[in-house]
Design a binder for these strands. Structure first.
Lengths: 231, 231
DNA sequence: AGCCTTCTATTCGTTTGATCTTTCTGACTG
DNA sequence: CAGTCAGAAAGATCAAACGAATAGAAGGCT
């Protein structure tokens, strides 16, 4: 008799059955509550849960709508999961990320278009510039993130890109970048990125995969055996 | 001024800051509401959202608790995402699944223990038996799912296993199995599974990866170019 | 003494009604 | 025809009350 769970299940089913599609507007709270046989409290709890998961979008004074349901939108809440485990054992996440990013690099070498290549090039140039002055850690951080996302986007698989983006949450990535900076390995990171991009630009999947693997394995080494970093 | 969003963010922060850990009990709704400055309505909406995401667990008459926060629990809600896209373009999901399952097979060949090997063996034997009689489609379906999960578990990476389990949601998998049955390829599927398991038992990572790749590529072919299946 | 039953306080679950804020729509006016 | 403003509609919030389930304490039975 979990009313809230019923509401969530009912709305899910409506979407899965095609009664509700992306962009559609739901009935008003009053009507939907009557239709499902629950009062506004539990109904709002269910709608709120789906909104937090990125499935629904409520706008005061307007109504409640089904979102675009794109993988990127629906996976965004997962970044919280990554953040939770980031403090403790982050290695399993890194291992998965490595697998996915290597695949993305290989796919990007085959599928990336001129625009995507230019975007990756811009991000790389930006990170190169930011690596010059130690004060620009934040800039480097953003550019680094942008490069990896550009590669993931170039693979042409939105699910793959969404997963990579999720696994490289801001918190997790910030920790990585901090470690890299502490190790004075900014230059090496940029060089490895350039190697990856060259392979992608040359449309050489296996080389792109290998170079991304080398890059991420190096990053993992930093994190797994930090010689000087205590925190 | 989105009260509900504030509640979600506040509880998240409490967990990230370590004020709340796995298994901890939250203050009562009345107290927590007062602490956050919201009334019971919005508070319950926020708690409900986190409960739907697998972060919190509320028990009537007892209280609200933080879940184990394990990757498997927190990623379960994502199966809905897969189901939503299953009807339309499922190929991106299959492509990602292939990458992850191949990696899992290779890792399992290196890391699996005797118990895990026995579990995979049992699932395989079960599916083999179920493949004999066409009436046991459901049994075959469950055993097939069990085999893939056993391999994923044998890899020893909970994040990897959780992602694979999520991407092989019941709905998505049911569709695959139906197609395979229609094609009369049950025997071939079992044989491919056995080949994968042999490579894992022999602790040969590359062979395990290759054989899993062959298996999943074959499955993908079924789905991408169904000669006779309309639905 | 130990175990089982029962009772009670606590806590979440649901309902209802009222009020506030935001947004959209359409009529009105220059 | 365009801009403005008032009203309607919808979600957001608060508040009070009652129902249901659980845990733990109290009491009685063996």
């Amino acid at each position: 008799m979990a009313r809230t769970a019923d509401v969530v299940a009912a709305i899910k089913d409506m979407i899965l059955a095609g009664e509700l599609s992306a962009g559609d507007r739901l009935p008003t709270e009053k009507d939907l509550g009557a239709q499902l046989g629950v009062s506004r409290g539990p109904l709002r709890e269910g709608v709120s849960a789906l909104a937090a998961m990125g499935v629904l979008d409520t706008r005061q004074g307007d109504g409640t709508y089904v979102t675009s349901l794109e993988p990127g939108v629906l996976m965004a809440p997962l970044s919280f999961v990554v953040d939770v485990h980031n403090a403790g054992g982050a290695r399993p996440y890194l291992a998965v990320r490595r697998v996915l990013e290597c695949e993305a690099a290989a796919l990007a070498a085959m599928n990336i278009d001129a625009d995507g290549l230019a975007a990756a090039e811009r991000a790389l140039a930006e990170s190169e510039a930011a690596a010059q002055s130690p004060a620009d850690i934040d800039r480097f951080f953003s550019a680094d993130l942008g490069f990896h996302r550009a590669v993931a986007a170039g693979a042409g698989n939105p699910v793959l890109a969404a997963l990579i983006a999720t696994l490289s949450g801001r918190t997790a990535r910030a920790r990585l970048v901090r470690t890299i900076v502490d190790e004075g390995a900014l230059g090496r990171t940029v060089a490895e990125h350039r190697a990856v991009l060259q392979a992608i630009a040359a449309h050489d999947p296996e080389r792109a995969r290998l170079r991304m693997d080398v890059h991420l394995a190096g990053v993992e080494d930093f994190l797994q055996a930090p010689p000087s970093v205590v925190l």
